[in-house]
């Protein structure tokens, strides 16, 4: 069972693809089907991209840290950025209407919420923003 994997990545869009492939492999290693592992990696990377953009302001010197742990029946991803932002209560719950529908704001979190079984935002012990994403294992 996978335990204590920590990834520290710069807030640089060019690393997204390789991290996504890594997350997909973590899923497959943990027993997620190949098809679902792509969904898992998309969900995780939507949250990571959000952390890069909103938490770290796209500054490549600021890192996003991903803590990965497997527990019986679930994979847990903790995704920390360097900010202290609190998502709006409606972020990633409703796609909006009219112009908001066209805007890309919140679309990634909305997709992550729908792919993963659990996604929540809070603060880590250092007071920085932390997203918790849970993926069930059958």
């Amino acid at each position: 069972m996978l335990k204590g994997i920590v990834l520290k990545i710069p807030s640089d869009g060019s690393v997204v693809e390789s991290v996504q492939i890594f997350v997909e492999k973590i899923g497959i290693t943990s027993g997620v089907s190949e098809e679902d592992a792509t969904g898992l990696s998309i969900a995780v990377m939507e949250v990571v991209k959000n952390a890069m953009e909103h938490g770290n302001g796209g500054d490549p010197k600021k890192v996003v840290t991903i803590y990965i742990d497997a527990f019986p029946g679930r994979l847990q991803f903790l995704i920390d950025d360097c900010g202290t932002w609190q998502p709006d209560a409606d972020l990633g719950h409703e796609p909006g209407e009219g112009e908001a529908l066209i805007s890309r704001r919140g679309r990634g979190v909305l997709i992550a919420r729908n792919l993963a079984r659990w996604l929540d935002y809070g603060l880590n012990p250092e007071g920085k923003t932390r997203a918790t994403l849970i993926w069930p294992l059958s």
Partner: peptide, 17 residues
């Protein structure tokens, strides 16, 4: 197309507009 993420959707929306 097997999968699409928010970036892919963003390109479709931008193409549409």
């Amino acid at each position: 197309v097997a999968w699409m993420d928010s970036s892919g959707l963003g390109v479709l929306v931008s193409g549409h507009t």
